[in-house]
Design a binder for these strands. Structure first.
Length: 580
RNA sequence: GGGCGAUUGGUGUAGUCUGGAUAUCAUGCUGGCCUUCUAAGCCGGUGACACGGGUUCGAAUCCUGUAUCGCCUACCA
């Protein structure tokens, strides 16, 4: 509990410095009490025993005795088996919660603005978006929202795969189909079929292969007609991606597209600058850089980053270096975030090392690979679009929405028509997003329909349900939400006190979430908040509370809980319906 | 072969960075709770730190070895 730690800090410092304990020693020991009955904060004293030459129990007793009077009105202090425990005083807690009531930001501070580029989503033109693309898009979206809320300047960078050798093949297939037919084919959203047809011809038809190779040369050379055809592929794909983004409700727009083709003209510049900085070497006809990480290949020989291939072509790493230059020098970014899967850990480590070595980034720049685990099939293999039938993202989202609509029809038949559809969308999409955001991002997970579409337990709908119930209380009481905000809060019942404790932690949890770019931290918190609300809801009648003071206090707790849930879910890119 | 990472109740999962008291939550199974604000809910029971060493007053957490799994290991992106 950060607010309590801040509040008791000065008193602890006074007592412990009097005992000859340095600040950095005890601040490292102070933490949340691991046993809830003991309190909110604990200071284990066992490690002090050596330096003070006394028993941990005696040390804890002495600290507690000195601290107790000083913290009167803030926290109750006790000593148990070598731990000093501090429990927030109900009146102090009430004051903290009441301070949040009029605060639109619910305690979340605006920070000194940094400029941050977030690279995420990055689908491939003329390829289907499948469930594997979900994580980058959803995690990136949450990080973008949180950064913005903290006052930072954020550049959303959608690094679309819109360039490279497959486009020769794709353009020739487009011509074979005829432009109008091809556009039709693409707009239906069956990108996989289009890609597979092209690939099949490429594998079986030599004339087609020759045309494709020639077409790549024309594309690279800037041939106008070829570029026009390429544009059709890109535009049709982007139209489809935007449809998916619309269903998902993420912030990405056409303005955020910075595909690989945008960096194409910079690639020779990357080579020149690496050359100039003296790190570029020749190896087997290719131009390479050996970053300082001690990387080895299969044969145990030093492994380089390939900047320019022996045939004069460029690699992925070269484009990433061009991106770094662009983001640092044109956008003036402090932080570069890459929301990209874990298999590319080594790639990014090497690229970052090259960028530092060549002076593209300095001490002030902070490049982070926000990696995430793979989506696996039921055999534990990575879901790949090339083999087998892959679940299309749109199908997952449609299924989620339709299951949600079915659930509403059963559980709340009064919701009808367009309103029901809108709520079904919020619940269905919220469930899918929450399922993806709520586990630690670096872990792999096995894709299961029922896991992604669960509406019970630790799920998005559970949090939305708590929110909707609160809205319902206000609807029935006829009391305006805003009128609850100058109430006096008295957390008399244990359920009320627990709810208050959780509410007060929101800002600290949000900061911790952003510090590690781990949306699951916020998810875990919001679930515990919703859970403590549900317990409160069972035992603390609000509208039918015995007296006005209790009712107003509870209404204020409800209002604050609803705002915390909707703000928290909002930071994750999940909506909070008022009814469900 | 080398490198990186993972392993927590039947299942899924938090905690591991920064060691602390009785390991979180969910699901499953099980026993209760709808004439009062939405039962997508609440209350109770059940059940887990891969294995072996080491460091420490104290290890899921740090070090080390083993097993199993995943990823990466130069001209794909």
């Amino acid at each position: 509990m950060r607010v309590l730690a801040d509040a008791v800090g000065p008193a602890l410092e006074e007592v412990l410095s009097g005992m000859g304990i340095a600040d950095e020693v005890w601040t490292g020991l102070l933490g949340p009490a691991t046993v809830e009955e003991h309190g909110d904060l604990a200071l284990p004293c066992h490690r002090l025993a050596g330096t003070l030459h006394r028993q941990p129990n005696d040390i804890a007793d002495d600290i507690a005795a000195a601290l107790g009077p000083m913290l009167s009105g803030t926290a109750g202090v006790s000593a148990v088996s070598g731990f000093v425990n501090m429990r927030a005083d109900p009146s102090w807690l009430a004051a903290q919660v009441m301070a949040l009531l009029p605060d639109d930001r619910l305690g979340i501070a605006v920070e000194q603005a940094r400029t941050v580029a977030v690279d995420y989503s990055a689908p491939n033109v003329a390829k289907e978006m499948h469930v594997g693309h979900l994580r980058s898009t959803v995690i990136g979206d949450a990080i973008v929202r949180m950064l913005g809320h903290k006052g930072h300047t954020v550049y959303r960078e959608n690094h679309v795969g819109d360039w490279g050798t497959p486009f020769g093949m794709l353009i020739e297939h487009l011509l074979d189909l005829g432009e109008a037919n091809a556009a039709e084919e693409l707009s239906v959203g069956d990108l996989d079929a289009f890609y597979k047809q092209a690939r099949a011809k490429f594998n079986s038809d030599e004339a087609f292969v020759a045309r494709s190779r020639n077409r790549v040369v024309l594309l690279q050379g800037g041939d106008e007609e070829t570029l026009r055809l390429w544009r059709i592929l890109v535009d049709e794909s982007m139209r489809y991606f935007n449809e998916v983004y619309g269903m998902l409700g993420v912030l990405l727009t056409d303005d955020d597209i910075m595909g690989e083709s945008n960096y194409h003209h910079l690639l020779p510049v990357v080579v020149e600058r690496l050359q100039a900085s003296g790190v570029l070497e020749d190896s087997e006809g290719a131009k390479v850089v050996y970053p300082p990480g001690g990387w080895l290949n299969r044969e145990g020989e030093p492994m380089p980053v390939i900047i320019e291939k022996a045939d004069g072509g460029y690699n992925y790493a070269t484009t990433d270096l061009a991106c770094i230059i662009d983001r640092v020098e044109r956008l003036d970014c402090d932080d570069l975030l890459y929301v990209v899967g874990s298999p590319q850990i080594q790639h990014f480590e090497m690229v970052f090392q090259v960028a530092e070595q060549a002076g593209f980034m300095g001490e002030a720049h902070n490049a982070v690979h926000v990696n995430f685990g793979s989506v696996l099939d039921s055999d534990g293999k990575i879901l790949k679009s090339r083999e087998g039938e892959v679940i299309k993202l749109v199908d997952l989202l449609r299924e989620a929405t339709s299951r949600a609509e079915q659930a509403i029809a059963e559980k709340n038949p009064e919701l009808q028509g367009a309103q029901r559809e809108a709520v079904a969308r919020m619940i269905g999409i919220g469930a899918v997003k929450y399922a993806d955001l709520s586990t630690e991002r670096s872990k792999d997970y096995v894709f299961e329909w029922d896991r992604m579409l669960a509406f019970e337990g630790n799920t998005g709908p559970y949090l939305q349900y708590a929110h909707a119930r609160i809205c319902s209380i206000f609807r029935r009481s006829g009391i305006e939400r805003s009128s609850a905000r100058d109430a006096s809060i008295t957390p008399a019942q244990p359920e009320e006190a627990l709810l208050a404790r959780r509410l007060v932690n929101f800002a600290a949890v949000t900061d911790a979430t952003l510090a590690s770019y781990s949306p699951h931290t916020l998810c875990t918190y919001l679930h515990s908040l919703a859970s403590s609300f549900a317990s409160f809801y069972e035992v603390c009648p609000v509208i039918a509370a015995g007296d006005d003071a209790t009712r107003d206090s509870r209404l204020a707790l409800c209002d604050l809980t609803a705002r915390t849930i909707s703000t928290g879910l909002g930071l994750l890119g999940i909506e909070s319906p008022e009814q469900m």
